[in-house]
Amino acid sequence: MRQDIFPLQQGGRKRRSQWLAFGVFGLMSYSIVFILFAILGFIIYKGIGVVSWEFLTTAPADGMTGGGVWPAIVGTFYLMAGSALFAFPVGVMSGIYMNEYAPKGWLVRFIRMMTNNLGGIPSVVFGLFGMALFVKYLGFGDSILSGSLTLGLLCVPLVIRTTEESLKAIPDSFREGSRALGATKLQTIWHVVLPMGMPNVITGLILALGRVSGETAPILFTCAAYFLPRLPRSVLDQCMALPYHLYVVSTSGTDMDSQLPLAYGTALVLILIVLVVNLSAHALRRYFSNKVKTN
């Protein structure tokens, strides 16, 4: 057996096969980097000429062949804010329960399994569910409210997971110290555990927001409008959204030549939002981790 695992070979041959394997792995890894930069580069290159102040601040015009994306940007931000309002409290509280209160054992395993399951459900199924529950059963209609709730539900598992993980990373000695000083369990969580876990929780929340900003399938049937000349006035109005707008502009329509630049521009704006959200999450994480260290 030992002979088999470590055959007595010439060192040169061993080294050569290692060199080959590592070379292939490195090549594969950098080809993924290449794919990312190809996608980003292509969209930035094609879209940069389209995006202007006017493109960002005007509504689509001439049957989707001119104008800008302002209502779609606004709609996307409404949806992000709405889903955040729903998902963050619920997700963070659920994470706190899982890590601090729930008795370890089958119950936690069950809840975690359900959370993972919810996280693995395809986004289009969320769309169906949102349509059945929020749009039809609860009677919210196609509205920002329905869309935000659907999107919020979609990112709850992500929020729970990050909350749970960041709370788990806090050593028990902090909790014990607080309890020993006479604080109740809730006071311990509020004054000790949460402040320490906050940086990571917030980073997770921001990443969840990034995911929400790009989702299309859940809002197809719950909220998104093909075209609205004015901005939504209440949460029961429909709204436009960037991802759906990109889908519409790039797949349906008659005048592809004049639509394509708009599609590039929309894709660029969408990617920029996602990039900014992701990078700010990273920056935040770095900032907080430095802060904790210097204290």
Partner: peptide, 20 residues
């Protein structure tokens, strides 16, 4: 360097992948 690249790759919205 690779870690953020992969995170970004997962952050790109599916509709952008579709468009590309």
């Amino acid at each position: 360097f690779l870690k953020p690249v992969i995170e970004l790759l997962s952050g790109i919205p599916s509709v952008v992948y579709g468009f590309f």
